[in-house]
Design a protein around this nucleic acid. Sequence first.
RNA 1: GUGCCUGUAGCUCAAUUGGUUAGAGCGCCGCACUGUGGCUGCGGAGGUUGCGGGUUCAAUCCCCGUCAGGCACCCCA
Length: 435
Amino acid sequence: MTSKGLPGFRDFPPADLALRNYIFAVWRQVASRYGFEEYDGPPLEPLELYTAKSGTEIVGQLYNFRDKGDREVALRPEMTPTLARMVAERANGLKKPIRWFSIPQLFRYERQQRGRLREHFQLNCDLIGEAGPLADAEIIALSIDMMRGFGLGPTDVRVRLSDRRALTAILKQRGVAEEGMQAAYQFIDKIERMRREDIDKLKDEVHPFAPATVSDLEAVAKIRGLTAVEEALQGAPGGDASIAPLRRTLAALEAMDLAEWIDVDFTVVRGLAYYTGTVFELFDAQRTLRAICGGGRYDTLLASLGGVELPALGFGMGDVVLGELLKDRDLRPAVGPTIDLFLVAVTEADSPHALRLAHELRDAGLRVEYAFTPGAVGKQLKLADARGARLAVVIGPDDRARGEVQLRDLAGSTQSSVPVGTLAIRCRELLMRTA
RNA sequence: GUGCCUGUAGCUCAAUUGGUUAGAGCGCCGCACUGUGGCUGCGGAGGUUGCGGGUUCAAUCCCCGUCAGGCACCCCA
């Protein structure tokens, strides 16, 4: 063994690449059902694309260096800034709403754990130019249908849904000032991971979200379900308006028959400061893995990143956690070599004829293999079986004398003599039948 | 970046409180089997016990370091 790969970076031997390709295929198929178009951007970007909005502390978590042209550059840690630039440059000419998706490989320099590496592929779906709650429902429905595309149901995966507008209204009513809002978000985000005693310890301290207390925020974090949200907003100024989008988003999801996937849960805040409305995450129902997907509405981000005022929302869904979940649930597609046909030469004198047939059949579009070394017919058939062939063609001196070959269906163990000239057609017929 | 835990064959795991040549199942290769596969039987290859150092007559086992993986923090842009 000469050298290992870098920590957090993956090799993809055929079985692993098959899973990755399968994930990509489902992503693309479902995205296209929603009318989403695929785009891509450069994996390497100017460093300032990521520091401009988020500050310089972010540099510690990304792969950045100075290139030979003395430019500060970084491997992309997320797709949204690239998307913002692309949309801003073309905003005037694009019909709204814009439905775009991408599957970028993203990089971040962090200590890896299960489900979190230093690179991953992340499906990004964004809906830009629509502020109404049907857009929120559309994006959430898309994320759910991604799960359904993999054979996962509402007992496997849960959508945890919250709304910053309703949450903010509740917090305001509890006395949280504008300046303390971010701190309150972060506290609520963290609260379910904290131990009872650690929460109690904080109760005597002075917090930026005062006069709201730790107990107030605990109560907010416990809110579950739309009714509980409505109750919490009873009598709050502007309370009814703040909950209207969530209410209409839920109604739309119900109309799509997807309500059973949704848990309204105000502990879902998302770390990102830029979310302005709906926020949601998808988790495995057992909660043994990290988030499968996270997203929300970011109506002001495009203005600050790309200088164009467009409401937008979207989500990111990584291939790593999803892959873990598919493995856990045994929902991986079958792997291994699969070919249509294996050619068996009975004697060495038959080999040139097998080679000619192999080439002709490959030209006809069939997936064909044969043994490289002569051997017993039984041995060659064993190899055919191991290679996943559906058909075998046996060519021997007797067959050749008659201008025929033996065509064997390996699954059904049926065999017949076929004139060489009609072999390709007969193969096609058999393959169609067993497909 | 911090703390804790774990590293034995391709995979899953054994190996008496530290004791001779580190084993098994699966997988892989070969043979039985030169005109018909899946099964079965037999055989074979494959290990610097992650790596480096230390303690000891003796280390897979104990100690230190390092690398890798896992868990919890941090972060999740």
